[in-house]
């Protein structure tokens, strides 16, 4: 059973390697952010699978942190990563 779970984790990490292609090739910024978020969400899945495999609670805590940090990254991107149309000197904060 443990071997199976570690195999599932392997499969999920392989998915990450697939998502890496989207981070690299884009083409838009949104694609890259979403693909980076994939590392977060798939990371949650991997950690949960491994926590069952190793029967350890700290791994679940780490998964919780992953989930919370995904929110931070998303909001920071929406607020900071998106620059408005060219030539607008004002802050895009209140878009």
């Amino acid at each position: 059973m443990t071997a199976f779970l570690v195999g599932v984790a392997f499969f999920l990490v392989a998915n990450l390697a697939g998502g890496l292609v989207r981070v690299i090739r884009g083409p838009t910024q949104a694609d890259r952010v979403i693909a980076a978020q994939l590392f977060g969400t798939t990371g949650v899945a991997i950690l949960l699978v491994l926590s069952v495999a190793a029967d350890s609670r700290p791994l679940m805590d780490t998964a919780l942190i992953f989930a919370l940090l995904a929110v931070v990254m998303t909001v920071v991107f929406v607020k900071r990563g998106w620059v408005r149309a060219p030539g607008t000197p004002t802050a895009p904060e209140d878009a």
């Binding site: 700290p58 942190i65 929110v71 909001v75 920071v76 607020k79």
Partner: peptide, 27 residues
């Protein structure tokens, strides 16, 4: 939980900082 489990002040501080960054970025 830092006294008995793998966790502690720095992890908690980093998480709180994440929340603070969230709030300040969101305005």
């Amino acid at each position: 939980m830092g006294s008995s489990e793998p966790a502690g002040a720095f992890q908690a501080g980093a998480l709180l900082a994440g929340a603070g960054v969230l709030l300040s970025v969101a305005g």
